[in-house]
């Protein structure tokens, strides 16, 4: 019994990084479809639409700014738009296009950009 519990715990722990990596990869793909136009190919807030924007899009590599926001806030901003966190209307609400799993994957990718790439 103890052995099987140990096995289960080991397997579960082993799966966490894999699941996280899958989430980040999926988030990166979605980011390239829905976000790069404003946030930039590299995620530095320098997308092709930037010259038309009155507010600079968030630089997702900005560790200080990004760590000041919880995952829940990032999720809310993506799902319900910038207005929902008292930010710009230029950040649209994507909740009608993406499901919650998609948005969680995007948050994982943003966390990867800001805080796990050594920038």
């Amino acid at each position: 019994m103890k052995k099987s519990l140990l096995m289960a715990a080991t397997l579960a722990l082993g799966c966490i990084p894999l699941a996280y990596a899958d989430d980040v990869a999926r988030g990166e793909k979605l980011y390239n479809v829905y976000c790069v136009q404003c946030h930039g190919l590299s995620g530095h807030g320098d997308g092709v639409n930037v010259p038309a924007l009155s507010v600079q899009p968030r630089n997702h590599h900005d560790t200080a700014e990004m760590t000041a926001r919880s995952d829940e806030e990032l999720f809310k901003a993506v799902k319900h738009g910038g207005k929902s966190i008292n930010k710009s209307v230029l950040m649209p609400a994507w909740g009608g296009n993406l499901d919650d799993d998609d948005i969680h994957a995007l948050v994982s990718h943003m966390r990867n950009l800001c805080c796990r790439n050594g920038e």
């Binding site: 390239n32 930039g40 190919l41 320098d46 997308g47 092709v48 930037v50 010259p51």
Partner: peptide
């Protein structure tokens, strides 16, 4: 598909 038609530049992505 904008992501496939733009490239990075010093200031911001360009077509």
């Amino acid at each position: 598909f904008p992501a496939a038609a733009v490239k990075e530049s010093e200031e911001f992505d360009v077509i």
